[in-house]
Each structure stands twice: as C-alpha cells, then as structure tokens.
Amino acid sequence: MNGISDTQLVSALRRQMTIAVAKQVASAGNLANVDTPEYKAVEVNFASALDERLTPPAATHSKHFSTASSGAISTQEIPGVTPRRDGNTVQLDQELLTMNRAGGDFSAAQTALAAKFRLVRYAINEGR
C-alpha cells in the first residue's frame, strides 16, 4: 500500500515537537532579554524547521526518509528588525505569539502521538 508508514509518522511527530520546544526556548531567551542593551532577538533556523515535511518530493528509497528527521536545529538572529535606541531587537508581542503557536503545535503533535500509541497498545492487548 502506498502511504505513510507508522515509523515515518512517529518520526515526523517527534520532530514537530522538538521544533516547537526549540521555538519556545528561543522565545524565552528573547523575552528574558527584552530590556538588555544590544541584545539581538534569535529565532529557530527556517531551514531546519522545513524538515518537518514528512514526504520529501520524489522520495522512493526508504533511506531517504531517515534524513528528514536528522537535521540539527539551530538558531539565527531574526533578520530585518530595526533596533530600538538601546540596540535591542526583541519584540515582546511577537515572542509571546511565537510561544503560543509553538505550544499549540506541540499539543497537536503530542495528542496525535498519544492516539497512535493508544491504537497500537489496544491492538496488542486485544489481538490476543
């Protein structure tokens, strides 16, 4: 059957959660330094976040799937923000928004993963 295997899905769910955590950590650091002079706000690297996509286009060999989740997550300075008078680039509402969104992403992935576990566990228990 042509579809997404369970292992792929679990791997992708894990990655979504890891990225959500990274975003929260970055935002927490930014919020802590909202009043620090010369501090530049950081964000999760866009390229590493893109690896969330489950099925890379035209992936035919099973070996392709493992690379989707193995990229390290890194942070970079948020580009294009005009610093305030003290050199700080942290935008308070932006960071809070990011944290809330990341929390939502994490919740969705965690609930889906818990549901998959429950399904498998049921099959194991009742399939005797």
Partner: peptide
C-alpha cells in the same frame, strides 16, 4: 482507516 489517519496527521504536520 489507519492509512487515512496517517495521511491526515501528515497533512496536519505540513
């Protein structure tokens, strides 16, 4: 239904 669920979750993720 399992395959449908996997597809739906994948759609949610991307």
């Amino acid at each position: 239904s399992g395959a449908d669920a996997n597809q739906a979750v994948s759609n949610m993720l991307d």
